[in-house]
């Protein structure tokens, strides 16, 4: 069972790494939110896999569902924000937002 847990958490960490790499290096705002989505996939995989391995799958499922709801609200708000930024700057380049620096 420990091997199975190791396998799932290994891949979950990999997903988090891929998302973090994109967040740190890319410039397109939509790509950055795709990266946030990839990270959240890694986290939900870790939650459900740990629940399955530790015989707590019902609790893990309810946590995963709560996480999905939070994720949807986050994405809806973030994408609305991206559309507004695009209307103002006519670009999705994150470097243009450095104008906001005080």
């Amino acid at each position: 069972m420990s091997n199975l847990w190791f396998l799932y958490l290994f891949f979950a960490a990999l997903l988090v790494f891929i998302g973090l790499y994109c967040l740190l290096t890319m410039r397109n705002l939509i790509k950055l939110f795709i990266a946030v989505e990839v990270i959240s996939k890694g986290v939900s995989l870790a939650i459900v896999a740990t629940g399955a391995v530790k015989n707590n799958i019902l609790l893990a499922q309810s946590l995963a569902i709560t996480y999905v709801v939070v994720e949807v609200a986050l994405v809806a708000t973030a994408l609305a924000l991206i559309i507004n930024i695009y209307k103002k700057n006519k670009s999705l380049d994150v470097r243009l937002l450095s104008k906001l620096k005080g």
Binding site: R27, I30, K31, E37, V75, L79, I82, I83, Y86, S91
Partner: peptide, 21 residues
């Protein structure tokens, strides 16, 4: 979420033009 992403991409047509390093 995919529908939301595609909708946003359609509304921001020049999004592809951002050059990555």
């Amino acid at each position: 979420i995919t529908v939301l992403f595609i909708l946003t991409i359609a509304l921001t047509k020049k999004g592809d033009e951002v050059t990555e390093a």
